[in-house]
Design a protein around this nucleic acid. Structure first.
Lengths: 183, 183
DNA sequence: TGTGAAATTCAACAGTTGTTGACGCAATTT
DNA sequence: AAATTGCGTCAACAACTGTTGAATTTCACA
């Protein structure tokens, strides 16, 4: 039935799991190939190098499209995509956490910054269309990333063990404040 | 007048500047000693190793005391401490940014998590004293860290270039939402 | 079964990591 | 003046980094 994974796929999966949780510079090529069960030389062979492998994992992000929702649903859509990570069974693959983890990185930081600017901040502001749309978009992202940061990285209770429904409720509450800024 | 810096002090200053901005694992001992203008061996000599040097820099955090304010001033005090970093002329030494940068780190993450739990989340909740004090404290921290993250790490406009006064205004606005959660 | 090409492994490279022991230097103490 | 003590330098270490060329295996096709 389901084809066995190719070596390239094995590398992409292992690379995503490790890069997205530990950050680009904190993962070695050998960490990835050990997890994938293949030789370390194949990263350069197949992808051209460690950097290119990381950039290939960025293609696996979905959730951007949630930010394309119509203005009156933008908040719930954003929160929904925020709480529905790429792979529901692997909570660590949450794209928000991956973006936070790698925007810190001294090598990949610029790449992530541009990605968030192009794929999140700008589309969000465009959809809002109000007078202070850029400010509202930036504040909304602050809320979304901030809650994710507290829950997953700082692991502050009760956010850490809170149900997803309760988390969404709190995030929407804060999100309304972000979008309510007028003058 | 002012004594010349001892080697130990030079190391602490260089270590703080680098560790706090790039993160523990992304800074090498030789990076620090090069910046301090001393030999690489002196880190192990004076502090016992790289880890101990990092932990020594944690002693330099101030701003905790702002979280000890009375409940009715807790928000403005927290925001004030948030926007008044350790060293006003070196914006990068903002303790919030340092905590975000190093909670990501695979080695120092646990240390930072415990620090934030003990010195921020718990004192904050104690001061609030309301029914949902833990939730309110966690949400308030989400706002504070989230805005700092967007401004400094993701560099989203207009937060990036916004004046500190405007930033404080927006943060307080979101903070009120965090503290307004009842049931 | 033999042949070629593709896939994978192996060994090695040059560079960096944190740490340590031996050594030299200077100032202070006997 | 001799000895001691603290301070700093230097070289070296073993482990790890990403990458590469050659050797080897695997597999499809004739």
């Amino acid at each position: 039935m389901n084809e066995p994974l190719t070596t390239k796929e094995k590398l992409l999966i292992a690379a995503r799991d490790l890069f997205w949780t530990r950050g680009y510079s904190n993962v070695s090529v050998r960490d990835i190939t050990r997890a994938a069960g293949v030789d370390a030389a194949l990263v350069s062979r197949y992808f051209g190098g460690k950097k290119a492998l990381f950039e290939a994992t960025l293609e696996q992000i979905n959730g951007w499209e949630a930010l394309q929702a119509e203005p009156d649903q933008i908040l719930s859509a954003a929160v929904e995509s925020f709480s529905h990570p790429y792979d529901p069974k692997a909570d660590t693959s949450n794209p928000f956490i991956m973006l936070i983890t790698n925007v810190i990185d001294p090598i990949m930081g610029d790449t992530i910054r541009q990605l968030v600017h192009d794929e999140m901040a700008c589309p969000l502001a465009d959809k809002l269309g109000s007078k202070h749309k850029e400010t509202q978009a930036a504040l909304l992202l602050s809320v979304l990333f901030g809650v994710a940061l507290m829950r997953k990285n700082f692991q502050i209770e009760p956010l850490k063990t809170m149900s997803r429904d309760a988390l969404i409720e709190h995030t929407i509450h804060l999100g309304h404040a972000a979008l309510s800024y007028k003058d």
